[in-house]
Design a protein around this nucleic acid. Structure first.
Lengths: 146, 146
DNA sequence: GTGCTATTGAGAATCAATTACAATAATACC
DNA sequence: GGTATTATTGTAATTGATTCTCAATAGCAC
C-alpha cells in the first residue's frame, strides 16, 4: 500500500477547502513530523524558535485543528491541564500507559478495541468516530521509590 | 458485602488526615450524590445556589480533590475544555460513549480491560492504578441530521 | 472555654487557548 | 505579470477554567 506523504495530504486538504498554503503552516507541520512521540504547543513553539522560525503561538493554535481535521495529528490527554498532541498518519493506532511518578509514557496496541467499537455500533446505533484509552500506573522504578 | 455510606467514607477520610468536617463539604458531597450522571463545577455550583446554599466555587474546587482522593468521585474527560466528574463509589467501573453531535453520554462495561491491565502490568512491570476509555461517535439521530 | 490552625468567601492572579484588528500575502481572474 | 479578493499572520487583548491570597471564621483538641 502506497501512502501519500503528510505534506501531500495537507496540501490536498488545503486546496480542497480554498484555504491557503503558507510557509508558517508548512513549517509547523514539518516540525511536528520531526518530533518523536508527543508534544505540546509550548514545546513545538520553542523548537520552531530554536530553528529560527518566527511562527507565533497563535498560528500554531490555529494550525493544529487543521492537522487534526485532515487526520495527520491527534489530541492526547495526559490529564495535566493542557493538551498534548502526536502525529498519527501512517502510525498504527495505539494507547498510552503513563507513569504517575515520573511521567514516562509507553505506547501499546489493543486490537480488542476494534471489536468493541463494532459492538457499540451495533448495540446503540452509533457510528463510531474514534476512541482513546489511557492507563495510569507506577513504573518499576517509581514503585521502589515509594 | 456491606458498604459504608459515602458520607461515612468521607468522614473517616477527614478524621484520618486531621482535616475538618465542615457543612460546606458535606453539602457539596450531598449534592453530588443526588446528581444522576455527570456534572461539572458550574452545574454543581448552580444546583447548590438553587437550594439556598452559599458555598463558593472556590470551596467546590477545593473539595473535589478530597472526594477523588477518598475514592468517591472521579474525573471524566469529555475533551471539551473543562473537567467533568461523576460519583463512583458503589458503582461498577464503566466507560463512556459520547455523541459528538448532541453530547449524549452512554455508559458501558468493558470487562476485557481488566485482563488488559494485568497484561500491561506483567509486560512492563507497572503497578496499574486505573484507566479511562472514551469512545466518540454519532448517535442514530445525529447521523440522520448530517 | 481557649488556642491552634484548617477552612471559608471574595476577589486577584494564573495559564492555556481564543479572538480582534490592522498589516500582509496567497490565490483567482484578468 | 498586475490587480482584487480575502485568508492568514503577529501582536495584544480577552476569555474561561482553575488556583491562589488574605483576612475572617470556625472546627477540634486540650
Amino acid at each position: 500500500m502506497v501512502m501519500k506523504s503528510e505534506i501531500q495530504v495537507f496540501r490536498e486538504y488545503i486546496r480542497g477547502r480554498h484555504l491557503r498554503r503558507t510557509p508558517e503552516r508548512e513549517q509547523i507541520l514539518q516540525e511536528i513530523l520531526e518530533i518523536q512521540g508527543h508534544f505540546d504547543v509550548d514545546e513545538l513553539h520553542l523548537r520552531l524558535r530554536d530553528k529560527g522560525s518566527k511562527v507565533s503561538k497563535a498560528s500554531i493554535y490555529r494550525a493544529l485543528p487543521l492537522f487534526i481535521d485532515c487526520g495527520l495529528v491527534r489530541e492526547v490527554d495526559f490529564s495535566d491541564g493542557h493538551w498534548h498532541y502526536e502525529h498519527i498518519y501512517g502510525h498504527a493506532h495505539h494507547c498510552h500507559l503513563r507513569c504517575l511518578g515520573c511521567g514516562e509514557v509507553l505506547e501499546f496496541q489493543e486490537p480488542e478495541l476494534g471489536r468493541l467499537e463494532a459492538h457499540l455500533a451495533r448495540e446503540y446505533g452509533y457510528r463510531i468516530k474514534g476512541h482513546q484509552l489511557q492507563v495510569q500506573g507506577l513504573c518499576a522504578t517509581c514503585q521502589e521509590a515509594e
